[in-house]
Design a protein around this nucleic acid. Structure first.
Lengths: 165, 165
DNA sequence: CCCACTATTTATAAAGG
DNA sequence: TCCTTTATAAATAGTGG
């Protein structure tokens, strides 16, 4: 273990942990270690988010495990046929991402049906046909809710202050 | 606001930062705050992983923003038509997840072609037809590489030790 | 790849604006 | 919702087995 050496070596000046700049790690070994550690970290975080907030979280991590292997064993690096992409997936409720796309379409239909009722709270939610578009709508809807809440607060304040004066 | 009450209430014993148990957060406000903060945190981590390790990372976070809204404003909670799922997506190289599925199939073809060459290193990589299956293969391939590396180490050790004896 | 250790950095819960 | 601050908890880089 590390501890066995630690107490017989002179204390290092620093030689230890350091701040990491967010740029591609050049050293293949360090890069792989970082991928392994951080990959697990994100998986943990995603699971926590799912549990804490009841959100469905999907996580895809693509890595080229053989490319990585070749980095360390250059006897294969000349052969471009050596290629394997490995995918790590976490979905709280196990569904494929195609299924998630379908789910979004289905929900879009419900949104369309409910659109008339929702008009006053969310001016435009009928054009979500892809995951990418939904991203923009999240901001939009959040802003709309924000406006409503601000309005409610203002009106509540008016009610509270006017009787006391 | 909370602050308006805070200074007229007696100072709480600790009421400060505390360790969080990983279970669903009951209070809707706290849950939403946690979702917002942790969501951003994971997005940051995913981006960092992508930059640091050159990995393609896809992240899906589904939340029901209107369900969330209804949690706090129960005047809508009786109407099941109020439903909007919001999706947050990050992909380093912007691709839909259907495109990612196609990519996986294409790579599978390459894997199939290279299978004969790979046989000694990875006993079976021809049956990856979905993201879910790939997950199992990651562990499998990782173990295979582990075995090879262990073997190499052992042989290297034999070479190093036998001349000295 | 796994594990352990630990100094350091990063994330974040709680509070207030 | 956004922001800031701060104390605390968690993640992790570097090292070694």
């Amino acid at each position: 273990m590390a501890g066995n050496l630690m107490h017989i070596l002179p204390p290092c000046p620093i030689m230890g942990r350091k701040r990491l700049l967010i740029k591609r790690i050049d050293n293949p070994c360090s890069r792989q270690i970082a991928y392994s550690k951080r990959g697990k970290g994100i998986l943990k975080k995603a699971t926590e988010l799912s549990t804490l907030c009841g959100a469905d979280v999907g996580l895809l991590m693509f890595e080229d495990i053989f490319l990585r292997y070749m980095d360390r064993h250059d006897d294969f690096s000349s052969d471009p046929n050596w290629l394997l992409v490995v995918v790590t997936v976490l979905v709280r409720k196990p569904e494929t991402f195609e299924a998630l796309e379908r789910k979004l379409c289905e929900l879009n239909r419900k949104i369309y049906e409910a659109q008339e009722k929702m008009r006053s709270y969310s001016p435009d939610v009928s054009n979500i046909y892809s995951i990418a578009e939904a991203q923009h709508h999240q901001q939009f809807v959040a802003k709309a809710i924000q406006r409503i809440e601000k309005l409610k607060k203002t009106k509540l304040l008016e009610k509270e202050t006017s009787p006391s004066l």
